[in-house]
Simulated assay, not measured.
Amino acid sequence: MDELDLIRDRAETVGFAPAEHLAPARERLLAAARGERRHRPRRWFWIAGASAGLAAAITAVVALAPADQVGVGAGVAHADPVKVLTEAANTALKEPVKPPRPDQFLYVKTEYPDHHTREVWYSVDGTRDGLIGDSKVGGCRDGKAPMYGTNDPRKEGMLEDCVPRPVYRTDLPTTADAMLAYLYAEAGDRKGDVNSLGKDVYGLAYEQVLQPASYAALFQAAAKVPGLTAVDHVTDGAGRPGVGITWPVPPGSSPKAKPVVIVFDATTYQFLGTPESAVTVKTYVDEAGQRP
């Protein structure tokens, strides 16, 4: 590798700073070079040691701008999936434990790249009627739930058998091994489908609420899944920068099949969504249709 290759490699790794940030660093670099020429033979500048010094100086120039200005997320220059998911678990454990009231609703707002938004209001204990957009979702009370949005107007509001499905989950494992076993059990005959498993992980992190220990176990369990990769410098559906965890599609899948990519904040490792969607609000409200 010659000097130019070394410089090019360093520049591609670190990224380029804006022009207005380069001038001071350029002057320092030239001043240093002039000083060395006064004390060493002219040919010194091209020996191997000087090449390494020049590459280091070039690194200082291209890295002069703050990370958020050059698109380099803190700590994820070469992201590792296990590290990212482990940090996501640590972040989840720091979330405050604030159990909602049973009569409240989980409100989640999701934004998409086309500026379309999705809003849902799910009953915390699963017994009250919620909303997905403007459409009602029947709550399950005494083993019966009203039907809404049916194709047959005669069935609108009729009762059907049900089991309450609380959106606030207190029934999930709190250790990585137990959570992984739970995910595999839920997958059933899809157990070997890593991409499908990624969808299950995303589903639990998306429009449900887990206790902090279960959230942590979810990401710790994901870290044990083989075949995952981390992708630097991705954005979620709202354009927020982050690092992505890619769940590969199974061999033999259609060429149109896309891997699930779950995006985390590159600094805090908080769950953000996917490149196609972004969870921008997730909180509790007192009534279906109410916004925070």
Rank of each mutant, 00 (worst) to 15 (best):
L6R: 15
I7L: 14
R8E: 15
D9A: 15
R10N: 11
R10A: 15
E12Y: 08
T13I: 04
T13Y: 11
V14N: 05
V14W: 12
P18W: 10
A19H: 11
A23M: 12
P24C: 06
R28Q: 15
A32W: 07
R34M: 08
R37G: 08
R38A: 15
H39Q: 13
R42S: 12
W44C: 03
F45W: 11
A48G: 10
G49I: 00
G49Q: 12
G49V: 01
A57S: 13
T59S: 15
V61W: 03
P66R: 09
G71V: 00
G75L: 00
A77G: 10
H78S: 14
H78N: 14
K83W: 12
K83M: 13
K83Q: 15
V84F: 08
T86W: 01
N90T: 11
T91I: 01
A92G: 05
K94S: 14
K94R: 15
E95D: 12
P96G: 03
P100Q: 09
R101K: 14
D103L: 07
D103T: 12
Q104K: 04
L106E: 03
K109C: 07
K109F: 01
T110M: 09
P113N: 09
Y122G: 02
V124A: 14
V124D: 03
D125P: 04
T127V: 00
T127M: 06
R128N: 10
D129Q: 09
L131D: 11
I132E: 15
D134Q: 15
S135P: 00
K136Y: 09
V137F: 06
G139Q: 04
D142F: 05
G143S: 08
G143Q: 10
G143T: 02
M147K: 12
Y148E: 06
Y148L: 05
Y148S: 10
N151E: 11
P153R: 07
K155S: 10
K155H: 11
E156M: 00
E160F: 11
D161K: 09
Y168S: 02
T170Y: 02
P173N: 13
P173C: 07
A178V: 02
A181I: 04
G188I: 01
D189P: 00
D193V: 03
L197F: 01
K199H: 13
D200K: 13
A213Q: 13
S214C: 06
Y215G: 00
A217R: 08
Q220E: 11
A221E: 02
A222C: 07
A223R: 12
V225D: 06
G227F: 08
L228M: 08
A230N: 07
H233P: 01
V234E: 06
T235H: 09
A238N: 10
G244I: 08
V249N: 02
V249F: 02
P250R: 07
G252V: 07
G252W: 03
S254G: 05
S254C: 06
S254H: 11
K258Y: 01
I262C: 06
V263A: 02
V263D: 00
V263K: 07
V263Q: 06
T267D: 13
T268N: 07
Q270W: 01
P275E: 08
A278P: 02
T283C: 09
V285C: 04
R291K: 10
R291D: 10
P292H: 02
